[in-house]
Design a protein around this nucleic acid. Structure first.
Lengths: 348, 348
DNA sequence: TTTTTTTTGAGGTACGCACCTCATTTTCTT
DNA sequence: AAGAAAATGAGGTGCGTACCTCAAAAAAAA
């Protein structure tokens, strides 16, 4: 049988009340007795039953996920996974609240965060660009005992408790290896397309990409980044012009969104299958593009894992429980047509 | 506030005892009242608090993991992950027992499985080749209410509840795409090395590999499988002979274990960096080989996820709770040097 | 209708823990 | 040594659920 607090009390020769005081770090216990209890815990291998503890605590984990109002496929996927996780989380007395903020307005974001303490939120997962205002808002939350986790893109200079997401620079390096090897040996040009190089993720990926291409594939020439500024039309235009202007372009690396517009313009120019197209994030469109052979590979992170990991980390933080680093390490996934995850229904 | 059984009873106009009977599918309730209770549950959005339920049930999940006594790196990794999971599982009142069976003795395996009911085991995760004796043993376990999950390699013709692992044929296809693209355009030969083609996994991977090479890379010629029979010496000899005999061998596909011997013989012949070597399973040696550039890519499954998924599935089965297919779907992971998972200490 | 069977209700105990109060004991001050 | 302060003990209640018993009510069978 697993030892319980009663066993600890007996072993340590103290009362239940004292064990309780030690376990929950309540004041009024001598150092000496704390040691006695700790020894008993160690000796018996006691592990607190968190389920029972939380039941008694009447603890209802309210977790907020704060996301930008961007209409991108990625954020939509994230929302979908959150909806799924919400249902599962209910049985573990965890409520998920999704909060949307205007992506271009750091002040509005800070105002929304400032409201969280009143909502009795235990933790926040935050997907937002780092700004000075945000730094202060996070600091304020932490001071009020609310855990903060950075989601997807890190907030390294803030006091966030944890970062849940992948290393975008490593993701860029991974793309580069694939691009370089898929292109083959001859001299080639690679175009890089991004929504905007003001986005951290894009910059980091590009940095990693250039790093590896420069080091391992000297014959490959990476062209300057083309920016779409979020407009499919612009993307089509700039890529079209680029392809007409340069000869010897063998691959295109898409740093962010715009898969549809990109595969379309390649189709229009009759170049499908002749270019190595590599992008990020496995959305439904990208899935189709992989199956159709319009993209060679996608570097992605598992959004389901992302959400569950953020939830586990937030729970661990509010429970003051250690985090299993191995489990929370998100992988940089490479997806080709042949290892596309099958839908649930296809699995036996 | 979340509704509780008391709210359900009030809403349905029945007593607590009746709600309990319905929730736990106890006999002696009229269809009509079952409906009334179900309606109340739906109306109030009641979700059973599994933490409290399991606490009251005094349920201690004893799960057995039955593994072969093979000394392979993969099985060792699996054992290591099980050890880690054991600690974490304790807090969730789950005990893990690892049972080892002689890999060549199906009767001994069956005998071990037959002992499980006495041990009050709730579920079994099983990594073993399918035999008629095993089929019967699994059937017997299921009849006694013990859930059975096939681990790593499926047991499709048995009555196992679930399979936790990857599709090896798809893994072979994925290897083929990488091999084909990494080799480039010219005509090339690819050697395939396996421990033994009597192993299911090896056969399935080879099937998938041939399928894609044949379809998408007509210029690539796949040589007959070389078998090492588990001996590093044999592997070195046969691969060495092969490389001397055939010219134009551009790649080697390693279906199972033997990474060390393979990279060594390539080294000895001074061919490191000139051959595209692709293998399976990310063990420490393989990790080193990737970093040193002695292997180009590895197709693997996340053993940590494997273990946790098996545990979750077993728990769900014993709780008669639905399974989140998305979460339990194991990915076929492609690992290159650049997306090697960093150790826990490197993340921050 | 009476008897038998089936359903339902009422109430209790337990799970492992948190948190509270009040009395009692021990330790420290002066 | 007396008083003040700190530490500890004893005991209770409740969290949401499972599971048990026994009595009472309702429905079905005779």
């Amino acid at each position: 049988m697993r030892p319980t607090v009663i066993d600890i009390a007996r072993e340590a020769g103290v009362s239940l009340a004292t064990v309780d005081r030690v376990l929950n770090e309540r004041p009024g216990v001598r150092e000496k007795t704390i040691l006695a209890v700790s020894d008993a815990i160690a000796k018996l291998g006691y592990v607190r039953d968190m389920a029972a503890a939380n039941l008694a605590r009447q603890r209802n984990y309210r977790m907020a996920f704060v996301l930008p109002d961007t209409q991108s496929q990625f954020v939509q996927t994230l929302r979908a996974e959150l909806a799924i996780a919400s249902v599962a989380a209910l049985a573990a007395r965890t409520e998920i609240e999704v909060i949307t903020f205007p992506s271009e307005d750091p002040h509005a974001l800070a105002a929304l965060l400032a409201e969280l303490p009143e909502k009795a939120v235990a933790g926040v997962a935050l997907m937002a660009p780092e700004t000075p205002i945000l730094r202060d808002a996070i600091k304020a939350l932490r001071l009020r005992g609310i855990s903060v986790v950075a989601l997807v893109s890190d907030l390294p200079n803030t006091e966030r408790d944890h970062f849940v997401g992948i290393n975008n620079r490593a993701a860029g390096r991974t793309s580069a290896v694939l691009m370089g090897r898929f292109l083959g040996n001859g001299p080639q040009k690679v175009a890089v397309v991004a929504q905007s190089m003001l986005l951290r993720e894009a910059v980091e990926r590009r940095l990693g990409f250039d790093e590896v291409i420069g080091r391992d594939f000297p014959l490959v020439d990476v062209l300057p980044t083309l920016e779409s500024h979020g407009s499919p039309d612009v993307l089509r235009r700039v890529v079209g012009e680029m392809l007409k202007q340069f000869s010897g372009v063998g691959g295109i690396y898409l740093l962010g969104s715009g898969h549809r517009a990109l595969t379309q313009v390649i189709d229009d120019l009759g170049l499908t299958g002749q270019l190595v197209v590599i992008g990020h994030e496995l959305t439904p469109h990208v899935r189709d593009a992989l199956i159709a052979g319009k993209m060679a590979a996608v570097i992605t992170q598992n959004v389901g894992h992302l959400v569950r990991s953020a939830l586990r980390v937030l729970r661990a933080k509010t429970d003051k429980t250690p985090i299993d680093a191995g489990q929370e390490q998100l992988r940089i996934e490479i997806v080709l047509r042949e290892n596309l995850p099958t839908g649930p229904e296809e699995q036996a």
